[in-house]
Write a protein that binds this DNA or RNA. Structure first.
Lengths: 233, 233
DNA sequence: CGGCGTGTTGATGTATGTCAAGCGGAGTGG
DNA sequence: CCACTCCGCTTGACATACATCAACACGCCG
């Protein structure tokens, strides 16, 4: 993306969104923020890429932006289509890199907000526990998407198992052994699969030797293979 | 759910999660909150139901809770499985009713937090624009789920069209006529379908007379039928 | 032991993916 | 202005993964 400082901005008072935009609210709240400029993007121009240093959030002023990630095999996974008034780039808030890529579908314009300023305000204003609550929700959002928009049952189930294991781990379990608390029916409903397919796929994963299962008790044996399966769409 | 005030609580200092729980952080931050009690749930007991008056949030202390909605035809749609330390009930924050149901998968225990207190704190502490940002994300989360875990292409596409129309409407368009900003490829990728399937399904929807399309220009003709199709899993 | 809920497995139909051909608008160059 | 190409989209033919229906196995509890 071009250096947005090159692009002059006349400030929010000249913007068509004037004071309805969420960015201008921020400015209102913290008027000392200086760098806050409008920037044009042409079709297929990236706003940011996965892995880029995350120092700026963007508010979309006009146009449409596609948010996506690419897996190791290089194929793309659309996470969202963002429209005017949306804030993008926030998903990586607690890392220092963008965790997704953003590309313009139309000629679009965005306003840049320095993340450092936002962080400062947030830390001043918002209690830490509350921030954690919000961020957890962001993350869950991303996880759910990546569970659900896979095409193959095997990928979904593998992703589901890994996700569940991660959850369990963050609650203090081993991360390899855990107990599913829900029925095959519930899993199927959640993942958009028939319960029979869940059942079959689980036995298949066992036959491959990637997991062991006894009723709802799960042991993950081969994390690499399971992760790889989870990547495939 | 039983009246949680019946269930004595010894307070957070006796809880196994002691001060790591997000609820206790809230208590720390606003010590005047009195009603904050632990409550046991047996298997298949509801924490709350869609449509119930939303006056309480719950922090899960132990066990597992299934969050789901039911459509008009009565069939269930699992949105999430919530685990200890998760906060549930928040999705309806800006309505006054729960927008989903929550049922215990195991014997579980939860702590109740009066939403009024939380709202008071939030309003004192968090700028409105920031709250909106977080809530928008909650909503998008829910929308994405309901787009993605449908089984049939027709449902997904119908839901996608309605969602897009709604988005457009909230940006000031008619809500019936709008332009898709993304390719069939992108739509398919987003919805977990092949682009050919997107194409075919769109022409099918046209043949049914529910939408008119010309390239990326969409006119929604029969909202009732389209919505009905969107409901079906 | 017998019944019930949950999970597994098999047989079959169907929706969707995949491959491939062709269409049509948009842009380009003569 | 027309011919040409390119790209996105559509349509068709076929393969396949999954849903559905049904039978059965297993653990659980009375």
């Amino acid at each position: 993306m071009k250096d947005y400082k090159q692009e002059g901005s006349k400030g929010c008072e000249h913007c068509i969104w004037n004071n309805s935009c969420i960015g201008s609210k921020l400015l209102e709240y913290a008027p000392y923020i200086k760098i806050f400029q409008s920037h044009m993007l042409s079709v297929n121009e990236h706003v940011f890429n996965t892995g880029d240093i995350l120092s700026t959030l963007y508010v979309i002023k006009s146009g449409a932006i596609k948010i996506y990630v690419t897996n190791d095999s290089g194929d793309e996974q659309v996470l969202n289509f963002s429209l005017p008034n949306d804030v993008i780039g926030l998903e990586g808030y607690d890392s220092d890199q963008y965790v997704s890529s953003a590309i313009a579908l139309h000629t679009s314009s965005v306003c840049a907000i320095p993340l450092a300023e936002v962080k400062k305000i947030l830390n001043e204003v918002v209690p830490e526990w509350l921030l954690k609550l919000a961020l957890d929700n962001f993350k869950r959002h991303g996880r759910n998407i990546s569970l659900l928009n896979k095409k193959k049952a095997k990928s979904r189930i593998a992703a589901f198992l890994i996700d569940t294991a991660d959850n369990c781990k963050s609650l203090g379990c081993s991360g390899k052994d855990f107990e599913l608390s829900m029925s095959r029916d519930d899993i199927g409903n959640y993942l958009g699969l028939a319960s029979e397919t869940v059942s079959r796929t689980l036995t298949q994963l066992q036959q491959e030797g990637w997991v062991k299962m006894e009723r709802r008790q799960v042991t993950i044996v081969d994390i690499p293979h399971l992760s790889e399966a989870a990547q495939h769409r």
